[in-house]
């Protein structure tokens, strides 16, 4: 198992090309780089309101006073730090890797991508937390800020194992208390579990900005098997005897249809998503989702 604490050097070198930015998520208290509802001394104009006793005189827009002979106070939206959550699928299917690189599983890739985002968040001063959903229920690293918290989070990720299936609804209930409206949720998973997709859709509908990184293996893309294989689903234990070449076309068609259906569903729910292939550099999906030069005011996808 590759160490999830260390971001590969070439990936770390490309981190400046990334920016953890939200389209709908809003900052909370404090000073940061993200738009928030908090009024304060910011660059972004929010509104004029009539002067009320107690306002500071320097907040009065004197040019407007000259035109209208009334005192108005100019208010701006303050830039605030964001709260980002890394949400990991810890079901057994995340244990799968490619035969070509046996110690590089989906969970490893997801954790390294999560480590990149934690590093980004720390540099930007955003709060970041982690949430693992697996057979045992919920595993949580509370959202906080700063390098020490980042290290604590990475250390926690190191211990997480992918095991079993998806928990029931009741086990997920504490997640709703943690993921508050306006937070950014970055989910990592294979997207094969209906329960996880529906959770993401529900979160998106409840005013959380959800971003989904679908981690897929190269074998699922290429189906390079030759000869008879015994395919085993790690979550359900189901087995299927199959012959590589003769099954390939039917599988690739069915899998492409399923991915198209999932993409359409995520798009409809307003969830931005990208695919992280296990044999491709990890920054590809991250750059697609979190480009450094994106407009902060770009409208959220419909």
């Amino acid at each position: 198992m590759a160490s999830r604490l260390e971001i590969p050097l070439e990936l770390r070198a490309r981190l400046p090309q990334l920016r953890l930015a939200a389209r709908r998520a809003l900052g909370v208290q404090g000073f940061g780089q993200h738009a928030s509802r908090s009024r304060g001394a910011g660059m972004e104009f929010a509104q004029y309101r009539p002067y009320a006793p107690g306002d500071e005189p320097r907040q009065i827009d004197w040019k407007l006073f000259a035109r209208s002979d009334r005192h108005y106070v100019r208010e701006a939206e303050r830039d605030s730090p964001l709260t980002a959550w890394l949400l990991f699928d810890l079901s057994a299917s995340m244990r799968q890797g490619d035969a070509a690189r046996a110690d590089w599983t989906r969970l490893d890739a997801a954790c390294v991508a999560g480590a990149c985002l934690a590093e980004l968040a720390t540099r930007q001063g955003d709060r970041i937390g982690a949430l693992g959903i697996g057979e045992a229920g919920l595993r949580l690293v509370p959202a906080a800020q700063g390098p020490r918290h980042r290290d604590r989070l990475l250390l926690a990720l190191q211990d997480w194992q992918a095991q079993g299936g998806w928990p029931n609804e009741a086990a997920l209930r504490p997640a709703w208390a943690r993921l508050r409206a306006g937070d950014l949720v970055i989910a990592f998973g294979d997207g094969f579990d209906e329960a996880m997709v529906s959770l993401l859709v529900k979160l998106a509908a409840a005013r959380r900005e959800v971003v989904f990184v679908q981690v897929l293996t190269a074998e699922e893309r290429d189906f390079p098997y030759r000869g008879g294989q015994r395919f085993v689903d790690a979550e359900t234990g189901a087995e299927l005897l199959g012959d590589g070449p003769s099954t390939r076309d039917a599988f690739l068609q069915a899998f492409a249809r399923a991915r198209a259906a999932l993409d359409a569903r995520l798009d409809a729910a307003g969830i931005r998503h990208a695919v992280a292939w296990l044999d491709r550099p990890l920054d590809e999906p991250l750059r697609a989702l979190f480009p450094a030069r994106a407009s902060r005011l770009a409208p959220a996808p419909a």
Binding site: Q96, F192, F231, D233, L240, G242, F251
Partner: peptide, 13 residues
């Protein structure tokens, strides 16, 4: 046959 872990089993015919 060789045993292969394959999570996308449901799309196998």
């Amino acid at each position: 046959a060789r045993r292969v872990e394959f999570a996308a089993l449901r799309w196998l015919s």
